[in-house]
Design a protein around this nucleic acid. Structure first.
Lengths: 155, 155
DNA sequence: CTAACATAGTGGACGCATCATCTATTCCGC
DNA sequence: GCGGAATAGATGATGCGTCCACTATGTTAG
């Protein structure tokens, strides 16, 4: 654990600014969603993933992988969403351990109502403030970081 | 709320990748801190801010501003940290509504113990995976986004 | 076949974050 | 001064997220 070079000025600046930006953006998006719809940001993300499928349903573990969530988190969250009627759980006959999450009509309606406002916020807060080149660099950088992350934890 | 242009391919790619990266990084950092020290990531951030001051203390509202936290969050968090002996609250004589948060010896020790591992993780996960140019673009972009954010909420 | 192991999902406990509300103090216009 | 507005902070309720332990089903090696 010795010889850890501290962040230099440019590194610190990028790291801090990014952290700060992320915190602020997530906060605003959450607030916007809460104000303009009955959905939280996690609700939104789950519903988007489900409605991307033609049948509007997914196995829990599949959804976990696609969102990058832990299974426990998803289980808890889906339970809460099911209590509010946004999704329902459907047992899986092929694998009797498993279950599907499926959007309900209500969930469908809510996501359709919430999406434009959310996209608008994402544009106004983030996308429209940056140039295509900047977005490109960011995409590449983020993908690089993500790719390097699987082989982490005890290098 | 009409005419919201959806994100195009490049925009979506950048936005998604960034969101995903942020989620993964924060998760890893939190895990690393929890495993190698007794601090959570929020604990760490608070202690860093305090130990940056020569006197190791700050007014709560000042700390709020510097971290970008809401006052309620900070109040709750400081209470928990004080319960664990990492900081203590000191009443402010100049403004009798107010209070200082001050690092304790224990807090000092814990942050010093935790910092190298944390910086190392930040390097390995993020900083060292990117070029200086990429870090620069990211810093500029994030600062631009942040600057545009104060004048938001009902454009 | 069966014992060991892996996988899918659940559930409780606990710390964290937000919202709304509340108290105490200070600031400011008149 | 004084009364109303702004500010500093605390607090309770609630939803969220992680860790850990657990059940149930499926998979595989011997």
């Amino acid at each position: 654990m010795k010889d850890v070079p501290w962040l230099n000025e440019g590194e610190e600046r990028a790291w801090r600014a990014l952290q700060f930006m992320q915190m602020r953006i997530e906060g605003e998006l959450a607030r916007q969603l809460a104000a303009d719809s009955g959905l939280s940001y996690p609700d939104y993300v789950v519903l988007v993933a489900l409605t991307d499928r033609t049948d509007g349903r997914m196995r829990l573990f599949e959804l976990c992988a696609s969102l990058g969530w832990e299974k426990s988190r998803l289980s808890h969250h889906v339970t809460r969403m099911a209590d509010r009627g946004l999704v329902k759980k459907v047992r899986c006959d092929a694998d009797r351990r498993g279950a599907f999450v499926a959007v309900t009509k209500k969930g469908q309606k809510e996501i359709e109502a919430a999406a434009p406002g959310h996209v608008r916020a994402v544009r106004q807060l983030f996308v429209d403030r940056l140039t295509p080149d900047e977005l490109d660099v960011i995409a590449i950088a983020a993908e690089k970081v993500l790719a390097g992350m699987d082989d982490w934890r005890e290098p």
